[in-house]
Design a protein around this nucleic acid. Structure first.
Lengths: 333, 333
DNA sequence: AAAAGCTTTTAAAACGCTTGCATTTGTTTG
DNA sequence: CAAACAAATGCAAGCGTTTTAAAAGCTTTT
């Protein structure tokens, strides 16, 4: 009934060699006489033999598959990283098992476990919160893990990022230089280290340097979403801010549109700088000034780092910081 | 050295039962005496045993993994579908191997083959062109396949979509009702059936009904990208169009911004309707009128259909059409 | 208390490949 | 030309599960 699947054994028989030899030619092992290789290759072609990766994985204990845990593919920030990850994965002959986690700690643990059960050779984790339970799973397994665009304050697990402190500091400085005194800081949950520790620190540093008092009423904690941005505009306005540094592009464009719909002239009456320099910054009107960071590359470098770890190569530096910059577009004077 | 991996065998020994029994309790097979089940479960817990999915896959010939071929995760249209796919996959205990194809026929074939080598239980394919080589691979394998948001003119392979002909016809009609005589049709390559056969047909039908002559100079073939949209504005304008139906949201927002930057008043001087009702339609200013289609659901339903096929359930209808609508927002009068 | 019929459990054969070790074949060398 | 070494191949033991057929235990029935 079923299309009889043909195995390495069939090839071996037809080519009158051993399975070992067939395996060698399939894997490009050089210890095969060219004539033999040719003969085997012909049979493989004739029978249309396709090696079974599952059997391969079981025998070799390598699946050439890596797990990618992503909060939400639909968010351009993460999908940009994912694209970088996938491209270099492909380059190194790995496949990606993609799993959405919704930044939900429980799901993250769950998903991580099924990935490990599937014997992935490594995992790339995106998500702003390394909860204790996740960290526990990380350390429990011998599988290499790297964080992409996420930060581990303990610096225990490998990661690739930009320097969030400095980046936000510089963005805030830009706004200060433009004579803003009341600068809002709006971002995701402050319980996420990237916000509560890194970005906030940069924001405060810039203020301190300019001798501007830090005002907790100017920091806004919300979701990374367009709607949240639109919704928070009123509060930002009410707080008397004349500018804002924002931690996410979707959030920023929401705020921008919220202000615009409220007939606020941007950048004259209100300035803003966002954080991720995704496609969205070019799509909005005015275009958004932003911290620039190489999203694709963060993913790509993270995956590259992971390949090294999977290969048990010596790693000189576990936590890689990629360069960032600031582009001023239409939302700053 | 290596953390000694513990296997089903270890559990069997510790619980003094056979591997078969352990396997049964792990798989929830009812033929196990409650007392035995409990004993085994305790040992599993104590040893922290995790079944090896690869071995499982080899023995059972099921990997509970499906392959997803996507042109580009970074495109909101596709990532929305992907999100739907992943969610129901998770619901049915499947994992997703995600592979970017760049709509490139060669890559598609390549990727499909590695997915099949990995013994995925099914495949979801997104991409607007079912080339002959892809079709050949499809039919060659016994693995179930369904198209999501992509169309197979031959209707050989299962798919879930909306009725593109009618949808575009209706969108065009809307523009005609608003007294536009010169309506541009801008979309991706016409060699893709979705454009060249379906959408174009709907466009022409609407024109014919309104007794407006079809003018090939008003159809624009380009890429699905923001840049392409911006770039094509000049040509659309030069052609004298007063409105446009557009096949992709990124493309549409590009065109919209292109027009806006050219000081054209939208919707008064130029109207447009886009096709996918993604997040972008709410993000643009003015917000874009659009054909509404349930992107998430298309993915979800496609995956659901696939689960049925993998389960060898009887399928009543291979090609599912989901309902669409039209929302008029700010880019139409 | 033996026969019959269930319910549980076990033994062991797959599943399709990789890989360490042994063997065979081929090539140099002294 | 035998010895020594290198290259090419083969053997067979895994890899960690599932699954089928058979065996073992229990209950009922008679």
């Amino acid at each position: 009934m079923d299309k009889q699947t043909i195995t390495i054994y069939d090839v071996a028989r037809e080519a009158s060699v051993s399975m070992a030899t067939v395996s060698r030619v399939v894997n490009g092992n050089p210890n095969v006489k060219p004539a033999t290789r040719k003969k085997v290759l012909e049979v493989i072609d004739r029978l249309d033999y396709r090696p079974n990766a599952v059997a391969r994985g079981l025998a070799s204990k390598k699946t050439t598959t890596v797990g990618v845990i992503i909060p939400d593919v639909t968010n351009i920030y993460f999908s940009s990283l994912a694209r970088g990850i996938d491209d270099v994965a492909t380059m190194y002959k790995y496949n990606i098992i993609l799993a959405n986690s919704d930044e939900n700690g429980q799901k993250e643990v769950q998903v991580l476990n099924t990935l490990l059960a599937k014997q992935v050779d490594g995992v790339i984790f995106m998500g702003n919160q390394i909860t204790d339970s996740i960290r526990a799973e990380f350390t429990r397994s011998k599988t290499p893990i790297v964080l992409a665009g996420s930060v581990d304050p303990e610096a225990q697990v490998a990661s690739v990022n930009i320097d969030y402190v400095e980046a936000i500091e510089e963005a805030t400085n830009t706004l200060i230089r433009h004579d803003n005194q009341k600068i809002a800081f709006v971002t995701g949950s402050l319980s996420e280290p990237i916000n509560g520790q890194y970005r906030l620190k940069g924001y405060k540093k810039a203020l301190a340097q300019a001798k501007i008092a830090y005002d907790p009423n100017l920091v806004f904690e919300t979701e990374y979403s367009y709607k949240a941005g639109e919704a928070i505009w009123d509060r930002v306005k009410a707080a008397g801010a004349t500018a804002a540094v924002i931690g996410d592009d979707e959030l920023a464009i929401g705020l921008l549109n919220g202000a615009g719909d409220d007939d606020v002239n941007i950048p004259n009456d209100f300035e803003l700088i966002t954080s991720n320099d995704s496609k969205l910054t070019e799509i909005s009107r005015p275009k958004m000034s932003s911290i620039t960071q190489p999203l694709y590359d963060i993913g790509a470098v993270a995956m590259r780092l992971l390949t090294k770890m999977m290969n048990k190569e010596e790693i000189d530096n576990q936590t890689i910081l990629l360069p960032y910059g600031i582009v001023e577009r239409g939302t700053t004077k």
